[in-house]
Design a protein around this nucleic acid. Sequence first.
RNA 1: GGCCGCGUAGCUCAGCUGGUAGAGCAGGUGACUGUUAAUCACCGGGUCACAGGUUCGAGUCCUGUCGCGGUCGCCA
Length: 439
Amino acid sequence: MSVSSPSSVDPTRISDLPKLVGTTATVSGWVTHLRSSGKIAFIVMRDGTGLLQCVVPKKEVSEATWEQFGALTLETSITVSGEVRTDARQVGGVEMGLKELTILGASALDYPIQPKEHGVDFLLDNRHFWLRTPRQVAIMRIRNEIEQAIHDFFYERGFLRVDTPILTAAIGERSGLFATEYFDEGNAYLAQTGQLYGEAAAAAFGKIYTFGPTFRAEKSKTRRHLTEFWMIEPEVAFNDTHANMRLQEDFVSFLVQRVLERRPAELTEVGRDVSKLEKVKAPFPRIDYGDAVAILQKKGSTVQWGDDLGAEDESLLVEDHELPVFICNYPKKAKAFYMKENPDDPRTVLCNDLLAPEGYGEMIGGSQREDDHDKLRARIIEEQLPVEAYAWYLDLRKYGTFVHSGFGLGLERTVAWICGTPHIRECIAFPRMMHRLHP
RNA sequence: GGCCGCGUAGCUCAGCUGGUAGAGCAGGUGACUGUUAAUCACCGGGUCACAGGUUCGAGUCCUGUCGCGGUCGCCA
């Protein structure tokens, strides 16, 4: 490694330029548009922080610089120097009168992404380039804002972040596991949830959350599913199902308000109707499962008590609301074995889904956990799960069991709803789907 | 996996009741001093996914295969 030299200062970014009006600045980036009119030319460049138009009048630059302009192609990486000046016609309010132009890295003529419409399949094939475009940059900045807000929300409330294993023995939910060989231990599976480990951690630290990738090998082909997605799973000791729902609505409201406050330009870039987001403040409506079935039947649905709710049912329930909606206390047989039996109606469990408005579907699934050792063990056997694998999980009920609850928030579904994107595949840098492992 | 749909130029698409393969953008050449996905002129660009069938003749109709998308289920 070389030692630092006097020239190794932090580079100026396009977003810094409004503060530098009247000075000569040097910026590096990539060419996004080229226009020329014989004796005046324009370079629009990007550097990840914004766009900058450089004006190149033939008679004000050297002949060599003018010829270099002719060599530019889309996405050539360049360094430009020149006077920063205000110009009301530009997006950032400034432009550069170019004096010097250096080509850092040439770009082949067949750069696939053009300033025009493309199909989604083509764009996903070129995801490594698609990410450079303004809309995608905006979505990723909003995603990043949400991720930071998640950490801030829990940190401020005294939660401990726990990183749970990605390689697991078969535990958690049952269907759609990705398997891989694991030394002499047989198969390991990519984690579908960190929850069970989260429960153990909650007994150690009180309030915890996990934040990591999760994997589902289901052959889902819908706009709401990925095979690899990021999930946030809080788990709180001594919180019952009601406290759990209060945490969820405070959490979701916090995330939405944070994006509204700090990323208004990005919301504009993605074309989001923010008036709908501005209404998202706790408390959210709560509909008991039994009432939901009655509402659905009144709307003409054929659901019967005991059925799980389908995507169409969810849309019908959400259509009358501008806020996310809780659906509470589903029938036991429609839900996972670890959910606590409802003492007021043992046919049901203490749980909730949180449905996002505008048809974005299930954003959160949460529940109070079964804390009775014998009932939990019976449920594991009833579901024909291998009891031995759950020995440590049952131990949590054997040594100081405790009321506790938690939930899982799907990051990409949350980003999709807040950004208003039609498909969650735009909400993660490199989506993994059934038919997509590249790039 | 069920159902529906799509596959034509580098990209986005048009191509009718079957009759010699099209446009816009991108690329090349040239013009133009304030453009915002600049504009204008000219030029190059095709195994119509693949295989078979019907027909004088198939991008078009039929059958099959492959690839992909949407939707449902699974869930976040």
